[in-house]
Design a protein around this nucleic acid. Structure first.
Lengths: 174, 174
DNA sequence: TCTAATTTTCAGTAATTATTGAAAATACAA
DNA sequence: TTGTATTTTCAATAATTACTGAAAATTAGA
């Protein structure tokens, strides 16, 4: 029989998983993917696909797809145990590493495409004359310059040590 | 008749609007809202709801709703011209201000709720003993501490002058 | 090789989110 | 006030995205 304390802990974990899923939406990732991530973050031992399915009451297809996606983000990794055919998964638990992975992926998905579009617009209007064209070019250039800086910063942050960035950032913005 | 140059400029604007809309998706905002934003950013004069509807071929309800949403984000503002009943809209064109607005809004939507959840989980497991509970508490605490730092940085960045931050950031990450 | 365990795919369906269009509400001028 | 221009709301519908479950593919041991 589960003790009172175990129940309380389980309730907190469930809450965490549920809420992390809801938050996932506002981050633009699907609920299930966020829930699996949360579940693995608070589960000390690696879990199999079946355990994840059972715990979250989701289908095999759904579990498989979102586990792969999380591996793609670098937020979880697959573990193969000797003598076991089944694949297991465990989450990266170091918050700085999680942050770096998310930053890298977000840059790739959200910043790089913007840069491409802006460059294309610059090429397309190169050499055009007239007040209207100039206004357009100016706006696009300002966006492009800003995005380029952002892109650099994200690259640097995502590939640096937490110990180097966080204290600096804290001092910078104190 | 439109000159070759005018056509080229128009094509570039259309491309920008279309692509910005597509990118909006990956940012978690709906396509139409992103398109309206793009359109207003590259249109020198304020536009009426009808002009936006006409340009993007969307319904009045859709236009109205997304214009309001953009006003809510602080990315566009409504203009009332004397003698005109119609409301006009113009975009904030200063990239740093755009960035601040987006940062503020993203913090409110994406960071604040995470903080709430983490605090709730901490409260819920306060005082629990045992290895499992401790592991959970440790993980949640690390997330909470990190998110708190992030939250502070976003607040500071979003309320500072570009001239103060960008040079510093550039030096920091050179 | 064959067999059985496991993973992946994907067509069909469910759930969610975005959009329309027209009616209702509002705001303004006369 | 009343009439008209304008904005807002919202139920119905369309479009998109997520999920299921079972079949197909893959993998590894015998």
């Amino acid at each position: 029989m589960a003790t009172k304390q175990q129940e309380q802990l389980q309730a907190a974990k469930d809450e965490f998983v549920t809420q992390w899923g809801a938050i996932g939406n506002s981050w633009g990732v699907n609920r299930t993917m966020a829930q699996i991530h949360a579940l693995l973050m608070v589960t000390p031992d690696p879990m199999s696909t079946d355990q994840v399915m059972e715990e979250l009451k989701i289908s095999r297809g759904n579990a498989n797809m979102n586990l792969r996606e999380l591996v793609g983000w670098g937020l979880i990794r697959s573990i193969v145990r000797k003598g076991e055919r089944k694949e297991f998964f465990e989450a990266e638990k170091d918050v700085w590493k999680i942050f770096c992975m998310v930053t890298r992926e977000r840059k790739r998905r959200e910043i790089d495409p913007v840069q491409d579009v802006l460059l294309r617009c610059q090429d397309q209007t190169e050499g055009l004359k007239g007040a209207e064209a100039q206004a357009f070019q100016k706006q696009i250039k300002e966006l492009a310059d800003f995005v380029a800086t952002t892109s650099n910063i994200m690259d640097k942050v995502a590939s640096s040590q937490q110990s180097k960035i966080v204290p600096l950032a804290s001092k910078l913005f104190k």
